[in-house]
Amino acid sequence: MKPRVLIPLALGTNRDADLGTAFELAGADPILVPLSELRAGKTRMNDFEILAIPGGFSYGDALGAGRLFGLDLMGWFGDQLHEAVAAGKPIIGICNGFQALVRAGLLPGPGHRAVLGSNRSSRFECRWVTLEPGSGPPKDQVPGRCLWTESLRGPLRCPVAHGEGRFVSDDLDALVQTGQIALRYVRVGTSTGGIIEEIPPGPDSYPHNPNGSVGNVAGVCDSTGQVLGLMPHPENHVFARQDPQRGRSSGGSCLPLFEAGVVAVGGKARMKIM
């Protein structure tokens, strides 16, 4: 049986269908459920193998992006979420879903403080970025490897579309130490024939690091390695035709990210169609 993915919907969630498509391509069975129905207890988080919090503008970003979604998650489903983590289930939050998981305190996790603040440009921005999977925790620390990103080979390419995505943490070094920086913004060098380069600090970091995140952080994992949050939208690069470079270049499909989640719960990734 295909793993079932719960995609909960708050008022104003809008990238749910895109996320569903990505999981479907990855070999899972996505199910979209409004929070009100979850709350009524018709469906429980434990009925699913994977939890995926989608992007959008939950509650219109009122009182700060993701804040009220996060409040819903913790206020209504706190126990179920902690159960899911304890049961080893993969959880992913993308964009507004990441913001909600940070507000809910699941990311970066207990003992850390982090905020997704307004972009340094103070504007909403939609553009494609390149992401490099983090090197993960030190070799001897097997638990805690991010199950979503550890198997990724090479960079991912996908769009960002957000106004509040600047990752700020008062203990970035600790997150680096524990290998929780799962994805970082990098740039494709112009002079070196398309080789991936670190983004230099200073004004040149924009737009490769589109929001001014410290350490070029695009995504973080919790200490268990099960919960991933990221600002960019991997769900919008799962078909070859979604690559804006079309004939000029290819690669960087984000489908393997979703497949990693599916494989982690014993599902079979579908045949590659890229």
């Binding site: 990238r15 269908a17 895109d18 909403f124 939609c126 579309a161 919008n236 078909f239 804006p244």
Partner: peptide, 18 residues
Amino acid sequence: VRTFDHEILGGTLVRPYG
């Protein structure tokens, strides 16, 4: 144009800026 999301729904083939 970059303050408008032109990627959502995943169907955009030719973007306004390329």
